[in-house]
């Protein structure tokens, strides 16, 4: 197997995005932020049992997902990829249904959406992306799998196995590690020996790229380049997008027990929404009227999604049994009869 690209964990920089694309992606980021804010509120109101906020990671998610071809590519998320889902056009009411605990994997159609079911085992979906990608290569198709995971997941054995498999099999897959600095309560220093996830790419014979994950253009450009490389047979890429988890791990978490509030205040200056807006203004790509309209329209969209998930019907009890197997299973049929007679 020939060695491919030499490792390149250097910071990736990019030119500004074309204005129309930048405006479109800013609106996606803003919508994601507003949906996220509504979701936290829904948890506080008792509508969601718990919620995991992506606040602070909007540029990393929108920038990377917007580089994908929604007709050909397929995303494999874990559970904090709301803005990836939004960018790929996933039904967001169905997405948030997972957080309302209506169905673990979400109520959207993952196959039609090309966005795998929400997965709470953080390393688990990474080898799935490699398998899906290998399937593309074997079929002679040109789709690329994009695997989303975090700095915490980078410690999982499955991530190592997946990356090694991707290298050996020349699978068209892009690994996007959103390094948000905190794996629940554990900081990078206690998580990543060597200090860099991207540098590990060298060991798998694949390209490794570190990118400012709060720089929308840089993330988009790095992902676009990695997708092109994979699509043209150049194999996998590992992108480490350095970002920040601005909120707690989940609504059940208390960051004051493990991190300095000053750190969170310092982050506010590099909020990807603030930075993207400043970049749009500096480039003359958007004016006050655009931002006012975006604010109103994105808020309306977030509220529509909020109302939709709040009103979504609970699944019928038959859902307990309906999707376990495709083929008949007499033991489940018998248990379903018990449910019909004694529970329903």
């Amino acid at each position: 197997m020939p060695t491919r690209e030499p490792p390149d964990p250097r910071p990736h920089r990019a030119r500004p995005l074309p204005p129309d694309l930048a405006r479109r992606l800013y609106r996606l980021m803003l919508t994601a932020r507003m949906i996220d804010t509504e979701a936290v509120a829904l948890q506080r109101q008792g509508v969601f049992p718990a919620y995991v906020s992506l606040r602070g990671q909007e540029a990393a998610q929108v920038g990377s997902a917007a580089a994908m071809d929604p007709e050909r590519d397929f995303a494999f998320p874990t559970y904090r990829e709301l803005a990836v889902a939004l960018t790929l056009g996933v039904d967001m009411v169905g997405y948030l249904a997972s957080h309302r605990a209506l169905w673990h994997g979400g109520l959207y159609d993952p196959m039609a959406s090309r966005f795998a079911p929400i997965n709470a085992v953080v390393g688990g979906p990474v080898p799935h992306a490699v398998g899906w990608a290998l399937g593309e290569r074997l079929a002679g198709r040109t789709g690329v799998a994009v695997s989303y995971f975090g700095d915490g997941a980078s410690s999982e054995g499955d991530v190592h196995e997946a990356m090694n498999l991707a290298g050996v099999l020349t699978a068209p897959v892009v690994f996007v590690c959103q390094n948000n600095r905190w794996a629940l309560s554990v900081p990078n220093e206690r998580q990543i020996a060597g200090g860099s996830v991207a540098a590990r790419a060298a060991g798998y014979g694949m390209a490794g790229v570190t990118v400012d994950g709060d720089d929308l253009a840089a993330v988009h450009d790095a992902t676009r380049a990695a997708l092109e490389r994979a699509r043209s047979g150049g194999g996998p890429t590992l992108i480490e997008a350095l970002t920040y988890r601005a909120g707690p791990h989940s609504t059940s978490d208390d960051t004051s027990r493990y991190r300095d509030p000053a750190e969170e205040r310092a982050w506010a200056d590099r909020d990807p929404l603030v930075r993207t807006r400043a970049a749009l203004e500096a480039a003359g790509a958007a004016d006050a009227a655009f931002f006012a309209a975006a604010e109103a329209e994105c808020r309306a969209e977030a509220e529509r999604i909020r109302d939709g998930v709040s009103a979504a019907p609970e699944p019928p009890g038959t859902d307990l049994f309906d999707h376990v197997f495709r083929e008949p299973a007499p033991h489940l049929a018998a248990q379903r009869r018990v449910w019909e007679e004694e529970v329903r």
């Binding site: 799935h128 899906w132 990608a133 290998l134 196995e161």
Partner: peptide, 13 residues
């Protein structure tokens, strides 16, 4: 683990 994970992704494709 990777072998089974690979199978899951292949099956999804």
């Amino acid at each position: 683990s990777g072998i089974v994970g690979l199978a899951v992704g292949l099956a999804m494709n």
